[in-house]
Design a protein around this nucleic acid. Structure first.
Lengths: 210, 210
DNA sequence: CTTACTTCGTGACTTATTTCACGAAGGCGG
DNA sequence: CCGCCTTCGTGAAATAAGTCACGAAGTAAG
């Protein structure tokens, strides 16, 4: 209910999980779900579920939990689903091209609208309706097109330069696969997907336990 | 210094960043670095850097910061680098095959030693020295081979089954690319890489800020 | 050797996030 | 309509994480 309270950053990520689960439940023909049950599916406590949802509204009914149809609609609204979000991809190497081929995005409301690379061999390659362009042309093409979300999948050396260009072309959110801490101005959000860090967490754990 | 204090989970991830940065500095010929400087590189405060490091030892010298060679050695030790960690990959689709082709792992101390899939067309395909095997044979091959780290890159429907099999074959750490919350017994760690959640964070942000 | 400066390590404090636990609301059977 | 059960929403308490700020230790210069 309360719009003023500060919302923990991680609550939004959990909202994603809730949405995913209730969509699954909906497919199974369910029409109501309790916080306890949602918690079981997402490995969270019932209190956590209720609190997270309560940051955004009163979606539940005391005796009987949450109605799936309405909760779904609300969560989708909050998470900005419904619009199709255009994405710029920079770097069509191993990961970049995997993302291009991944069909799931469209279904989730995201489309890679443009793809760039430096490599001659990659420029001009077609993926579906999309042709890989020269990274030198980002500004030209991007300006005004208003993709606010970008994915960086270039080698570490190039990542900061690419980020700078993207910021100039008005990108506000960057999903970064390069193993670098990007410097961006305020108002631009970066989220890192960093495989070596993830794996090092594992090797840390494994080295210690026993 | 203090071994008893509870270490924040995120401190280990930051250790990875520190290690990466000092290795970069070392390549540039530097041999000392201060917490302030490390903080600038990683976008953290100097206090955060010092506190993180202090969970694991007294690596610094008061007047002059951290000696790169020794800090590097210590961090590598803590993070379990030095050994080559074998990894099992399950799912050789878009993402899985990108990971197989990614050369960086080896350099970081991780090697994909086995790869599995269900798809006839993928089974038998060779990537370097590695041949994709039938997922039905995981147990057989894995038992005793002692890969403790696995990567799941299968479609959501299959992920939990795969996880169960992996757990049986003694895997302790799972990097999960499937958009599902995996249920695993205590003692097994899962880290999720969830593109739609990441992107939904963005669409959430973008929907609100104006 | 003394003074001025740098930079660490850390306890105390602040802020952020999660968990607890309970009142109130809704549903249901009789 | 009345208990009884379920389940929400939410302040208050507990836990976790991050920041501050300062004493102590090192360095450098004269």
């Amino acid at each position: 209910m309360n719009e003023k309270k500060r919302i923990p950053k991680s609550a939004v990520s959990r909202l994603s999980l809730y949405l995913r689960e209730i969509q699954r439940l909906e497919k199974d023909g369910r029409d109501r779900v309790s916080s306890t049950e949602l918690g079981e599916f997402t490995d969270l406590t019932d209190a956590q579920v209720r609190k997270d949802l309560s940051y955004f509204g009163n979606f539940g009914t005391s005796g009987s939990g949450y109605e799936i149809a309405t909760l779904k609609a609300s969560l989708r609204k909050i998470l900005g689903k419904g619009a199709m979000w255009p994405i710029v991809l920079v770097g069509v190497g191993n990961i970049g091209s995997a993302l291009l081929r991944y069909p799931g995005f469209k279904h989730e409301g995201f489309v890679i609208k443009e793809a760039y690379d430096v490599d001659r061999n990659k420029i001009g390659v077609r993926y579906d309706e999309l042709v890989v362009k020269d990274v030198a042309d980002i500004n030209k093409n991007e300006k005004g097109k208003a993709a606010k979300i970008a994915i960086i999948a270039v080698p570490e050396k190039a990542a900061q330069d690419v980020a700078d260009i993207l910021v100039k072309s008005n990108v506000k959110c960057i999903l970064n696969f390069a193993p670098v801490v990007l410097k961006v101005p305020e108002g631009v959000t970066v989220r890192n997907i960093d495989l070596s860090t993830e794996l090092e967490n594992f090797s840390f754990l494994l080295s210690f336990s026993k």
